[in-house]
Design a protein around this nucleic acid. Sequence first.
RNA 1: GGCGGGUUGGCGGAGAGGUUACGCAGCGGAUUGCAAAUCCGUGAAGACCGGUUCGAUUCCGGUACCCGCCUCCA
Length: 473
Amino acid sequence: MVTIRLHNGKTRSKEVFTPIDPENVRVYVCGPTVYDRAHLGNARPVVVFDTLYRLLRHVYGGKVTYVRNFTDVDDKINATALARQQAGAAGSLEALIAERTEETIGWYHADMDALGALRPDFEPRATAYVPAMVAMIEGLIAKGHAYAADGHVLFDVRSYPDYGHLSGRSVDDMIAGARVEVAPYKRDPMDFVLWKPSDENLPGWDSPWGRGRPGWHIECSAMSLELLGPSFDIHGGGIDLQFPHHENEVAQSCCAHPEAGFARVWMHNEMLQVEGKKMSKSLGNFFTVRDLLDQGVPGEVIRLVFLGTHYGKPMDWTAEKAAGAASKLDDFVRLIGQFADLRKARELAPNEAIIAALSDDLNTHSALVALEALANTACYNDLARNLDFLGILSFDQLEARLGSRQDTLNLLIPYAARLAALREAAMVAKDFAPVDAMKAALLAAGVEVRMSKAGVELLPGPGFDAARLEGLL
RNA sequence: GGCGGGUUGGCGGAGAGGUUACGCAGCGGAUUGCAAAUCCGUGAAGACCGGUUCGAUUCCGGUACCCGCCUCCA
């Protein structure tokens, strides 16, 4: 079996990955808070951990359980719903919240599908696991790790000596940083909320501490416990979640089940930047995945750009990279269209060099180098197989692409004939102006024009637009 | 202030203590009516200062700069 090595954030070193149960490799990744469209940064962990999921499924024969949650309890969602209600929208607040989260989950699925990300095995919603959260909170209180105060329940960080280990911080240092909100009901400034009270304008559930709602961190502890058990293999998410979210998850879960150890391996993806700067609304470089898709940057281009940078390094999204990836994909599709047999390609195993690259802490960049090598060594069936394996272009997408490409080639046949005739006439007359005029028009329509002794060949280029062929015959 | 990540050729971006990364762009050539595409060839590097070593871009220490987190943003 292939040896997978992963950088474990818990130990800060690259380790050989050994699953707890090779018959059921278990992965939990923190998913989105469903208050709005996913921005481009949200897509990075999706692509990173989808790639991990594909690798694990390959190596462990599909015996993988991948969980990615939807956080549908959140004050931004509440605020949106309340604003809609105040603007005259019909329905109860709960109904408006549900509407908002349903809508957002639908968007999320559509956008992440476009990036070639497989759906996880489970996509639990926090609102469906409130009883499990309440039970875990009660357990933490019973063990002396949490306390109720003023309708809130707080986790007592001083009761867990390892608090801060995952993120490499100490409670005392953080307090010294003095950027902590000190609420009167907290015993220690670093104590964090497990449960908080809700007024009538907020969604709430009955609990031993009154009507309220869960704090952010407890949902992941409760849902991973329910779906994967008290200990599992890999926990992933963005590096920005390392503190406080993941630190608090560890504290909750390890105190609730001290014998289990919670997640064995922690993986964090680094942040995304745009043209060298942090993506932010104030800089005007903030955009969603949908924005890019609508601008004509296809999901496979986004995915290819993402895979070019190791997940542990900051990634810079630039228009130049996107253009480069689009042109590379065009080349791949053209080569596959000319030389590959997709029926045979489907039978192939993923390329060993690609598997080896991914097995080395998900070295996607090296995997792409290996992919490129397949194109350069005329292994076009393998190229198609591995584009599918890496989630860049599935076989179905390739077939659709090749189909429409063939349609375009057929459409271009009469234009090629016309250009060839003009050219032959020009050779005799020594006047190439009519040829050059038609060539320029074809180029303007996004057609690639190739003329040689063998004849004239017309191919659809990246920006092909059939409408601009009008009147050229 | 605390914690973490980064700094490689024109650009992007890896691996490896000593032997070509690779891609894009560039340059030279073949080819072409001119191009495009393709093919052949080719220059160019590792922030800075020390240390370890026969030898470091690769290991160790320090400096500078950039980025992120510490505020329920992936």
